[in-house]
Amino acid sequence: MEAEVIKANILLPTHLSFKRMQMSDKYPKGYARGRHWKHLKQILQAENYQNFPPTDPNYVNIESPPSMYPSKKFCDITGFEAPYVDPRTTLRYANANVFKSIRSFPNEHVQRYLSLRNAAVVLK
């Protein structure tokens, strides 16, 4: 180990006295593929919230509903209020200048702008 690294003291020691089982024994090297942690979606699925009364608060039912207000349209590029939509790229834009720049964007740019508001075409 380089002196600089040791001096900065950034590494976690491999042996810690207060642990019942050291990390290297608990998660032996080379078995990383076998370990899988349930993602949040899978955890929630396994919680079986449907078996409990709906009045009990749980992780799923405390979530906010969709907004009651009509969603406002904003220009994807500048953030101004956008009265127009480009039919070719489906980007929203505020004025002619923005439109000009939209038309000069490469497709990758357009898709990235669309994905900002979750509207990009996703090919699976």
Binding site: E63, S64, P65, P66, S67, S71, L116
Partner: peptide, 16 residues
């Protein structure tokens, strides 16, 4: 306040 701007269809902080 407007999660719609990034495509999340939920209420914003004030509405919550």
């Amino acid at each position: 306040f407007q999660p719609n701007m990034i495509g999340i269809d939920q209420a914003g902080m004030d509405e919550m």
